[in-house]
Structure formats: C-alpha cells, structure tokens
C-alpha cells in the first residue's frame, strides 16, 4: 500500500495558482524527494499533505486518510520536522523532548532519541543556546519522538555548513533504515541524490518529471560525453556507446586526460525547469 497518493491536487491563493494538478504516489518505506525552484508549489503541496492547509481540488490520501479531515490518531502517526521554528527557547533539550513524548500513546525513549540526533551532550542545555544545526536536530527529535510511520522534512538543511549537512544526512539515512517513510523537499540536488530513492520535480505547480535520481528525465539513457587530450589538442565527443568509442580510439594505448561523463542530476534538473519556463 502507498503511504501517500495524490491525484489532481490544486490550490490557489486568490488569483495565484500555487499548485495546478499534482499527482504523486509514494510507497511505504521510501525516501521521496520533491525538487523544484522557489515558488514552484513544493511547500504548499507538503502543507496540504501535513494537514496544515486546505486544498481547492483533487484527492489526497496520507496513511489511508484524508489529511483535511483526519483526527488526532492520524496526527500521532505522522511526524513533521519544522524548518523555521524558534519555540521553546527557555526549555532544555530534554525537557522539550520529554514534554512532546507525553502527547503520544507509544513514544520512543527520550534519551535514545536525543542520542540518535546527536544532542546527548546538549540534553541539559537551554534550547536558545543551541546552534542552528543543533536546533534543526532538535526539530527532528521532536518530529520522531512519537514513533511516526511517515516523516515530513521541508528543506531541512537550508543554511547548514557542509559538515553539518553530512551529519544530518546520516541521521536521515538511519531513520530511513528503520522503515520510516520520508517525504523531503529540497533545492539541493546533491541532497536528493544522496538520500532519495525517488524524486519528483515540481515546476509551476505541476510534476514535470519523476524517477530515481539516476534515471530522472531520461538521464541514464542520455548520450555520454567522452573527452580526452589528442595530439592536436583537447577533444570531446557525444556518444551512446562510450565503451566502444574508447576501445576504438585507444587500441591499447593510454588516452591522456580521459573522462566519460553523463549529465549530472543538476544538468537534468536545470534542463527540466528551463523547458517549462
């Protein structure tokens, strides 16, 4: 059974159409990334799925229920990781995680969750004293303390330094390895590539491509670019059969500065969002 199915989702704010017919199917246990430029409709889509926003059109099912009408029991099964919250500044990390644990029927162990997000050393510190990255880790802890089946992460690593991002990715992977379904929005392509089983690209309120990071937008079938340094200077050729091309060129010799590249996820993505503009 799918964790999330969306058909023909539409949402407008006054005259502005934010989401213009999104279809999605996200399987249980999958890490799914929504990519798209700012204002593409990612956040609106996710907020509808979280039950934070009403939709104008379409059918939505999240863990078998309509988020527009689902009740407390449903909200106990999802976890939402906020990306801009600054609440609970005066509480300590442990106090706030323990307090949130009290909302659920079967919460995870408080100290275990704190350890999982790497905040054990900060457990007794006031939330206001945390760094940006630590604060987001606390957000994850609060999002998973109820033992959710599905976790929403909306642009979780915006503003992180590279090391903090890597640590955060490891945290998300460990969460995914326990079978939790994860829906992630991001505009970092390396993040989608590192974490997601499947990705969908949203542009102008519509899904323009969907697939695994390796096959998105026909990426795996795209022509390979073979470059090398020939006697007369650098050469580049586009080919469907790079292995055969190299065998023919080299005939056992070393080809200096040989590279074979396929379009990166970023190339594919930029092409996809460029096409529709």
């Amino acid at each position: 059974m799918d964790a999330i199915t969306v058909r023909g989702l539409g949402k407008s704010y006054g005259d502005v159409t934010a989401v213009a017919g999104v279809d999605l199917a996200i399987r249980r246990g999958e890490v799914f990334a929504l990519l798209g430029p700012n204002g593409a409709g990612k956040t609106t889509t996710v907020e509808v799925l979280e039950g934070h926003r009403r939709r104008d059109r379409g059918e939505v099912s999240v863990l078998g229920e309509d988020p527009g009408t689902a009740g407390r029991a449903w909200r106990a099964r999802i976890g939402i990781v906020l990306q801009t919250a600054n609440d609970a500044a005066e509480l300590t990390v442990r106090e706030s995680v323990r307090h949130y644990a009290g909302y659920y029927a079967h919460p995870a162990d408080v100290d275990e969750v704190i350890e999982r997000v790497g905040l054990t050393e900060k457990a007794g510190a006031r939330v206001k004293s945390l760094s940006g990255g630590q604060r987001r880790r606390l957000d994850v802890a609060l999002g998973i303390i109820g033992g959710p089946e599905l976790v929403f992460l909306d642009e979780p690593t915006t503003g992180f330094d590279p090391e903090a991002r890597r640590q955060f990715w490891a945290l998300i992977r460990s969460l995914a390895s326990t079978g939790t379904t994860i829906l992630l929005t991001t505009h970092y392509l390396d993040e989608a590539e590192a974490l997601a089983d499947r990705v969908a690209v949203i542009v102008g309120g519509r899904v323009v491509a969907e697939g695994t990071p390796a096959t998105l937008g026909g990426r795996s079938q795209a022509k390979a670019t073979v470059s090398w340094l020939a006697e007369e200077g650098p050469r580049t050729m586009l080919t469907d059969t790079p292995t055969a091309l190299i065998a023919e060129l080299s005939r056992g010799r070393e080809l200096p500065e040989l590279t074979v590249t396929r379009p990166s996820l970023e190339d594919t993505y930029l092409e996809l969002i460029g096409e529709t503009r």
């Binding site: 979280e50 039950g51 934070h52 407390r72 029991a73 909200r75 106990a76 999802i78 976890g79 939402i80 906020l82 801009t84 919250a85 600054n86 609440d87 609970a88 500044a89 949130y100 909302y103 659920y104 609060l142 109820g146």
Partner: peptide, 17 residues
C-alpha cells in the same frame, strides 16, 4: 508569539488539540 515562533504550527502537527 506562539504563532510567530512556530509553537502553534508544531503543535498542529501533533495529536495536541
């Protein structure tokens, strides 16, 4: 302040009524 700092938004995503 609860509305501004995200307290209410966070609670709205939990079983808290």
């Amino acid at each position: 302040l609860d509305r501004e700092d995200g307290t209410l938004k966070r609670l709205h995503g939990t079983p808290v009524t």
